[in-house]
Structure formats: C-alpha cells, structure tokens
Write a protein that binds this DNA or RNA. Structure first.
Lengths: 194, 194
DNA sequence: GGGATTCTTGACCGGTTGGTCAAGCGCCCG
DNA sequence: CGGGCGCTTGACCAACCGGTCAAGAATCCC
C-alpha cells in the first residue's frame, strides 16, 4: 500500500472505493470477495492491495467517507436557517435526500453495526451526528420552542425515526423523498413539542 | 436432516438453536463457522446436519423463533388492558424488556436485514409487528385519542424510536429498562398526539 | 535513450469454509 | 438376545478466502 498518490492514483483509489461500496451493499460485505471487486473492475488483485492495506480497512474508509459526505450535505442544507426547529427539520430532510442518492450506504451502515471490527468507526459517526442534533435541540429549548427534556434522548429518537421511515418508505416502497420527509418531520416535531 | 423428532432430538435441536444464536450474536454470522458451533457443544459436525439442512436455514429459524417469542410476550403484557394508547405503551415496554433478556437477537436482526438471504424472513417479522401496532393506532383514532393520520407511518416511526433508544440506552449504556421505556414511550406518545 | 518510479499482473500460498458420508454407537422393542 | 433405528463421529472434500510477491508494463524525468 502506498501513502502519497499521484492524481491518477487517487482516481483509481476512488474507483475502487465506489465499486466496493456498491458490491458490498448489493451482496453483503463477507459474500463479496476481493477477487469479485477486482474482477468487476477488470484489473488484477495486486491493484487492490496497492491502494488498500486490507479488505477490512477498505470498509472502514467507506464508512468514514460516507458519513463525512452526509454531514457536509446536512451543513449545506441548514446554513441559511437560524430557527433551531427549522434547522432540525432541514437536517432531517437533507439526510433523507442524501440516503436516496446513496442508498448503498444505508445497508452498509446497518451491517457494520453488527460486526465488532467496524462498530468503533460507526459509533464515532453516530456520536458526531447526535452531537450535531443535540446542539440544535438545546438552542430550541433556550428559545422556548420545545420543553426542557434530555436533548440527547430526543436526538436518538429522531435518528431512530428517520432511519426507520427512510428504510421503509424510501427504499422498500420507493415513495417520493418529499413525502417521506414530511412523514418523518411531522412525527419528530410532534415528539419534540411539549 | 430429520423431520419427526423424538423428545431427546427436540432438546438437542433447541440446544443447537440456542448456542448458535449466542455465537452468532457475539462474533457475527459469517465469522462463526459450523465447526465453531459443534465444537462449543462438544459434538461432531454430523450432529448439526442431522438437525439442520444448512447454516443459512438455521439462522432463518433463529430469526423466526425469536420474533415469535417477542410477540408472545407483547400479547401477554397487554392482554388485560383495553385502552388503545395504554396498549401501545405496554407493547413498547414489553419489547424493551424482552430485548434486555434476549440482547443477542437484537444484533442478529440487525445483521439479517443486511443480507439478501435473510431479509425475506425479517421483512415478514416486521410486517407482523407493524400490523399489530397499526391495529392499536386505528383503535385509538376511533376513540379520538389521537389525530387521524396514516397509522402505518406512525407504527414505523414507533418501531424506529424503540429500536434506536433500546440500542443506545439499554445496550450501550446499560440503563435500567424502566427508564429506557419511559424515554421511548414519552417521545412516541407525544409524536402520536395531535 | 535510459533509468528510476509508479503501477499492474496473476500464479500462488496457507488456511478456512460449508457440507458429505461410510462407519459405528447405544437405546428400545420384539 | 438381536436386529433396527435414531443419533453421532470425524476424516474428508472441493471451493474459496484474504493476502503475497516476483516479474513486468507504463509513465515520467533527466
């Protein structure tokens, strides 16, 4: 494995990252072998191990990169809004839109949570997401928009609703993102209100 | 594999089922080999394939049996209650208590959702759970306890909250079941109320 | 051109996997 | 006592796994 990469090398690396994420999401991490990955790219096995130290490290990186991109999108979406409750709503909607465009990450996150080797990465991702939400909830409490309850519990509850609603209505039933967003937001804002 | 089993056979079968669930939950499905399972029981490999057609079928059966048991507990818990909203609350609390006692099933359900071979079984489990909840929500709407919203969306939202809160507060932080139940119920009942 | 560097190849390795099966054990019934 | 059946054994198998590496191609810089 190499550290410093030329522009061409970076592209290859991104290529592997992308294709692996697709294959992992489609068939699962374990059932997808390194041989499958390189075969689907039409390259030799050595290419994989030139850019990644191991299959395990690859998935960790996919998880980190995915979450980072999701978070970037959330920030973009609510940058212009100042009202805390509206910021929460925009964050929820942005997440659902992102998941629609990156469906494979959803399954991957789910799987990673079940294996010890990956749960640390995932836990860190989750804690960042929760901290973001908690900040908005605290702001909303200060402004008197919602009752003074433990913000962290509320943040986790919101996460749960968004994940479940996304899974069912966006992925299984392929409903339009906006309607899925409406459903999640409605339940969550009611749950927050006192 | 045998169909009709003697009492002694049934016991063996249950033994394998139990031990496998433990091992799967601890190390993951794929990393746990059939050899590991039989070794931990101190028996030969043939025993496994006498009672189960394959490793895959074994997990399917674990998933079905687990959900069946959870559902039985839910029914027991709310049998005496007639008020729809209270029935929902008791169902939520019973689920959390069950998951505390059967923590390994939680991880197993999570993993199974990520692999195509098992998602059908899991989807069926989920649909049964949703149907149960929907029934109570409809009753509550009829009695005017909650606003007339799509009951299915509400049911999925509740499922999401319960799963996420259970995962975080019951498993990761080991808080007392009652407090975990309180948190989940409070958010859900607010989310339902209009 | 030519040498160094970056990247690619694919045969190969030790180890593991899910699954098979001929053989044998021991309990039960006639 | 003996034969049959439910159950158990564990060596064995082909397939596959993640990972290595010596050899070579492509690219770049002098």
């Amino acid at each position: 494995m190499r550290r410093e990469l030329t522009p061409r090398g970076k592209e290859r690396r991104a290529q592997i990252l992308q294709r692996s994420a697709d294959l992992f999401a489609e068939r699962g991490y374990h059932p997808t072998s390194v041989a499958d990955i390189v075969a689907s790219l039409g390259v030799g096995k050595g290419v994989f191990y030139w850019y990644f130290a191991s299959k395990e490290e690859l998935l960790c990186e996919i998880l980190r990169a995915g979450h980072q991109d999701l978070r970037r999108r959330q920030h973009e979406a609510l940058a212009a809004e100042t009202d805390p409750l509206r910021r929460i709503e925009l964050g929820i909607r942005a997440s659902i839109v992102w998941f629609k465009e990156h469906q494979h990450y959803f399954r991957l996150f789910q799987f990673a949570a079940t294996e010890e080797a990956f749960s640390p990465v995932l836990l860190r991702n989750e804690q960042i997401a929760i901290a973001d939400t908690v900040r908005h909830i605290k702001d909303a409490i200060v402004e008197g928009e919602i009752a003074d309850t433990d913000p962290e519990v509320l943040a986790y509850a919101i996460l749960g609703v968004v994940e479940q609603i996304t899974e069912t209505y966006l992925f299984e039933r392929d409903e339009p993102v906006e309607r899925v967003g409406d459903a999640a937001v409605r339940f969550c804002l009611r749950g927050l209100a006192g």
